[in-house]
Amino acid sequence: MRILLCIKEVPETDAPIMLDQASRWIRDNNLHCYRMNRFDECAVEEAVLIKEKFPDSILDVVTVGPKRAEKILLRALGMGVDNATHILSEHTGYLSPFITASWIAKFASDKDYDLILTGVISEDNMQGQTGPMIAELLSMPCATSVIFERISYEERLIYVEREIESGARHCMKILLPALLTVQSGINKPRYPSLSKTLRAKKLRIPVICSDALLKVETRERPELIRHPSKSRQSLILEGTLSEKALELAAILDKKSLIK
């Protein structure tokens, strides 16, 4: 089995983010802390689990991103991926999933992958488009939001369960090669091992310049970025912990919510 994993760096979501009106997107700067998209960690884990079942498998990982994004490639290598490639793009601002997908599809087109895994969605862009677009560009069948998979290698088939509404599962059999977008809950991503991480740090990760791969025009663009509007009154309580607690209890009592 030859497997390609697509992973993305995203800004840490717990910390404040900055908006950039010039690029009409999230400000791309080194004040933000970046990490691997959580759904992509599940994709990496799933690939490593497949390799444990089919030890001949080769796992490749690719990311499209700036120099900084090398960090998540190292993490994937530390989790047990064999090879990494960095498609370098110093593009700041919004990068359309179609562009990312076009670059990755171009990269993958001559490599005969049996399986390509992406996350179901990226935590920053949140479009869930990149995976299905790569599949379409490579004319591969695709299953989104996969929560279970089992490969039967002799038959060249993969059995998958896609998560659909209310947690129900849509079951299908797909002929390989195929692309799956991986939903969280499919597994528990492992921590990178120290020895693998140290080994990875000695590697020189090959870099491909995105512009050299393919020229692609964006098809949509952000016109504006702003902080979200409120759907409720959002009263912020002030004071010490116990003052806030007492005030909240008073509000709940007044609303007859404490009975």
Binding site: T13, I17, E123, E223, L224, I225
Partner: peptide, 25 residues
């Protein structure tokens, strides 16, 4: 005349307004 679409990004920390530059959207 320009049609725009609002969507959440970054887990809801921001909202972005998008427009398409193609004949079909």
């Amino acid at each position: 005349g320009r049609i725009t679409f609002l969507r959440s990004v970054l887990g809801g920390k921001a909202q972005a307004v998008f427009s398409a530059m193609t004949d079909i959207t």
